[in-house]
Each structure stands twice: as structure tokens, then as C-alpha cells.
């Protein structure tokens, strides 16, 4: 995020000298006039709930004995709560596998549809993007059916090779079952973003590279990918944030595999269970906040890491 902020700051400085003192007040006023409405919504629906959640998370409610102030007690509890920790560990592991997989597929598809202009690639572009138009909940419902051994296609497909179909709802395979669902859901969206970025590249760059004797692969690796690195970074950050907050898909697949997907399967599901099923808004808020902290740390670690390596991209 810091990258982005600095970039925007730099552009403001360019026009800084233009501003005259007389216009300043007017500029302040107009700026706030335009930003104001969003600002109000932002304060009312983001800052206020966050502050409230923070406040709630400092209290503890018991069935017997009422509500008491415990300061950071809920956080101490969360970070020693095996359910929360295993949930965090799951989403971290999940991010480490799911995100690179989605990005690689999206990048490959984007490069193909960018390089090859045929009726087929244009058709493919639309079809690959189609899942993004499906609400994640509906997508999860659909895959829930497809994973069924009795009336999903898996039994038929694996039967062709004389193999037994894997049970994606079993404890060992649910990880991959969910990876598949999110890849199906999001890869097309990322592909479109990357494709849009690729289309934004000045074609004369390719021409110049070709003159220098660069082949297709070299152009893709040396010119295209570095030039869309900011777009890649953007989707990486967003998919990281999204994946760490994993909720919809496992929540829906729980109806089909309650033994495998426990209520505390991901931190967000755990927060939901605490708050809405067990009426413990205090601990639920603390878990949400703790998760927010984990997201913050992961994103900053990631940005720090990519910043150092940016030249390699």
C-alpha cells in the first residue's frame, strides 16, 4: 500500500507550485466537498463499527455472571485458542497455495488471449470470465453438487481411467476441493485485469524488441510481465486480503460436510459462530480484530518482500 500512496503523493507535488495562496481556502473547501460524502459514510460505516468492535472486544460476556471488562483478555485467549490458531494456519497455508496457482493460471490465460487474436480466444476470454459473474455462494453450491460421488461427474470421469473418484469432502482433500472452487471463481477475474493491463502496453515496444531479435517467449517474459507488474501486485494484494478472510465457500459447503468443515474452520467462520450462534459478540469481535491484525501483518510482509525483489519482476 505504501507504494501506492507514495506514487500518488509524487504526482501531487508536481502541481504543487501552481497553487496560489489565495485559492488555497477554496481548494480546501472544494476538496472536502467532493470527498465529504464518502468521508461521512466511511466514518459511519467503517471507523465507527471498527471502534465499536474494538470496545466490545475488551469485554467478556458469560452466561452466568454477566459482562466484565477484561482488557486484552479476549486477545490472549484468541492467540492461545487452538481453534483460532488452526483456522489462521489453514488460511495462511491456503493462501500460499491458492494465490500463486490462481495468478499463474490467470497470467498464462491473459498472455495467450493477448498474443493470439482469434474468434476462439475471444470466446474463451468471455467463458473464462463467466464464473466471476456467479456469486461465490452459488459457485460453492454448484461445486458442492459436482463433488458428489453419486451424481457429480467425478465418478464418471475417474471411472474412464478405472480409478475411484476422490472424495473432496474428506478431511484430507477438502483443502484441494476448496482450492479448486476459488481458482474456478477468481482466475477469470484476475485474467481480465491482467489482460486489460496487457492491452494497455504500447505495441511499439514489441516491435522494437522484435527488431532486437527477441522471440515471443522473450517478449512475454522480459517485456510484458515486467510492464504489468503493478497490476500483478495489485491482484496479489487483493487476493491475499480476500483469501485470509475466507468465509462464503466453506460456510456453504458445511451443509454438505459438517464433520470436515467445523464451525471454526476459518477465523471468519469462527467469529461468525461465536457472535451469531453462541451470542458471544465480544469474543467474536476480538477474533475479527485478531484476524485483521493477521491480515495487516501478512500484507505488509508481502509488500516488503515484493518491494525488495521488485527489480526481478
Amino acid at each position: 500500500m505504501t507504494l501506492l500512496i507514495e506514487e500518488s503523493a509524487a504526482s501531487t507535488q508536481k502541481k504543487a507550485h501552481k497553487v496560489r495562496g489565495k485559492v488555497r481556502l477554496r481548494e480546501h473547501l472544494m476538496g472536502w466537498l467532493f470527498v465529504g460524502p464518502f468521508g461521512i459514510v466511511f466514518l459511519a460505516l467503517l471507523i465507527a463499527p471498527l471502534a465499536y468492535a474494538l470496545y466490545l472486544s475488551l469485554w467478556q460476556k458469560k452466561l452466568i455472571g454477566g459482562t466484565n471488562f477484561v482488557f486484552l483478555g479476549n486477545y490472549v485467549k484468541a492467540f492461545t485458542d487452538p481453534t483460532f490458531l488452526s483456522g489462521v494456519w489453514f488460511v495462511v497455508r491456503f493462501s500460499l497455495v491458492a494465490i500463486p496457482l490462481q495468478i499463474v493460471i490467470a497470467l498464462a490465460m491473459a498472455l495467450i488471449v493477448d498474443a493470439v487474436t482469434s474468434l476462439f480466444t475471444r470466446f474463451s476470454r468471455l467463458m473464462i470470465f463467466l464464473p466471476y459473474a456467479i456469486p461465490t455462494v452459488i459457485g460453492a453450491v454448484m461445486w458442492g453438487f459436482l463433488y458428489s460421488k453419486s451424481f457429480g461427474p467425478l465418478t464418471d470421469i475417474f471411472g474412464l481411467f478405472g480409478a475411484t473418484a476422490p472424495d473432496f469432502f474428506s478431511k484430507n482433500l477438502i483443502f484441494y476441493g476448496l482450492i479448486n472452487v476459488v481458482t474456478w471463481q477468481w482466475a477469470g477475474y484476475y485474467m481480465i485485469i491482467l489482460y486489460a493491463a496487457l492491452q494497455g502496453i504500447d505495441p511499439s515496444l514489441y516491435e522494437a524488441a522484435r527488431m532486437d531479435g527477441a522471440g515471443k517467449w522473450q517478449i512475454a517474459l522480459r517485456i510484458k510481465i515486467p510492464l504489468i507488474a503493478p497490476a500483478l501486485l495489485l491482484i496479489l494484494v487483493f487476493s491475499l486480503i480476500g483469501t485470509l478472510q475466507f468465509f462464503n465457500e466453506p460456510q456453504i459447503l458445511r451443509y454438505l460436510a459438517a464433520g470436515t468443515i467445523a464451525p471454526g474452520f476459518t477465523p471468519n467462520m469462527y467469529a461468525y459462530q461465536q457472535a451469531f450462534a453462541l451470542a458471544n459478540f465480544n469474543y467474536g469481535s476480538a477474533i475479527s480484530f485478531a484476524l485483521g491484525g493477521v491480515v495487516f501483518v501478512c500484507v505488509y510482509a508481502f509488500l516488503f518482500f515484493t518491494r525488495k525483489r521488485r527489480s526481478f519482476l
Binding site: S170, K171, A258, G259, A262, P263, Q273, A277, L278
Partner: peptide, 22 residues
């Protein structure tokens, strides 16, 4: 019990563990 939801959730989780043989 006065915490039926928690009890059943816990039971579901552990039956799941019995099923996968752990």
C-alpha cells in the same frame, strides 16, 4: 444442557475426527 449449540458443534467436530480415523 444450557449450551446445546456448543455441545453439538463439539460433537460434530469429534465425530468427524473419528470418521477420518485420527
Amino acid at each position: 444442557s444450557p449450551f446445546g449449540q456448543y455441545y453439538f458443534d463439539s460433537m460434530t467436530k469429534q465425530i468427524g475426527a473419528v470418521i477420518d480415523g485420527s
